[in-house]
């Protein structure tokens, strides 16, 4: 859920930039470390970012009638971890605002925080703990992606509520924004979760070495998942 250009008033867009920039710097530091180790990661990351951009511009068949687009951030978090995802999401969000007029430049900080940092971070933690606990891989991907979307939507509502408190109460306005946007965001998150889980299913079938190479799955789990399909 993008906040559009000019929507956040003056103290708030600076605050969200101030919150996001240190995380992005850390992400760039992590990414540079990866690049020094394996130089082939640069084109791979670029291609992955382009994939996220194109995926997010696909229209999902929607239940409520509004147009809904997947964000792709949950998937990126599972594949690359939250630090690298935050860097990729900065570029993707910048391109979305410039190429599709989705989002904005002053609101980039707030959007990066909700979509590139908070959502992927929570999704990654969920994914890691659940996979340690032995949850089914596809169910885990479904839940992690849906959670990434929900966290993004809750954080966006909070950002709007902080900027526009009702009668001095942030909580009242948060409730209102969250309630209204829930009608589109809750089904969207479920759709995107299902989409990502199914994509992962086909990727395991056709090209599982990618997932093993990224340390998303071990080769024994892949063998088990493939065995379960036959």
């Amino acid at each position: 859920m993008h906040i559009f250009e000019g929507f956040l008033p003056s103290p708030w867009w600076q605050i969200w930039f101030a919150v996001s920039i240190p995380v992005i710097m850390y992400g760039i530091y992590q990414m540079n470390k990866l690049v020094r180790e394996r130089r082939e990661i640069v084109p791979l990351l670029a291609v992955a970012g382009a994939f996220i951009f194109v995926l997010s511009s696909l229209k999902l068949p929607s239940v409520t009638g509004s147009s809904s687009h997947p964000t792709g951030t949950g998937m990126a978090a599972i594949l690359f971890g939250p630090a690298v995802t935050s860097v990729l999401s900065v570029i993707v969000l910048l391109y979305q605002s410039l190429f599709l007029a989705h989002g904005g430049l002053t609101t980039l900080g707030a959007n990066v925080f909700s979509m590139g940092i908070a959502g992927p971070f929570v999704a990654y933690i969920f994914y890691k703990t659940a996979s340690k606990a032995g949850m089914n891989f596809y169910l885990n991907v479904f839940l992690a992606t849906a959670i990434a979307d929900w966290v993004t939507y809750v954080v966006t509502s909070l950002q709007l509520a902080l900027a526009f408190p009702f009668e001095g109460s942030v909580f009242a306005s948060f409730k209102m924004f969250a309630l209204v946007f829930a009608t589109t965001q809750v089904p969207l998150a479920i759709m995107e979760g299902a989409l990502t889980a199914l994509i992962m299913k086909y990727v395991v079938q056709v090209k599982s070495d990618v997932l093993v190479g990224l340390n998303v799955l071990t080769s024994t789990t892949v063998a088990k998942l493939k065995g379960a399909m036959e």
Partner: peptide, 20 residues
């Protein structure tokens, strides 16, 4: 949409390796 997404993912991965 699922088929399209998967195809795109696999294709982009192969492209990335070729690009390198």
């Amino acid at each position: 949409v699922v088929m399209l997404g998967t195809n795109l993912f696999i294709r982009s991965w192969e492209q990335g390796e070729k690009l390198y």
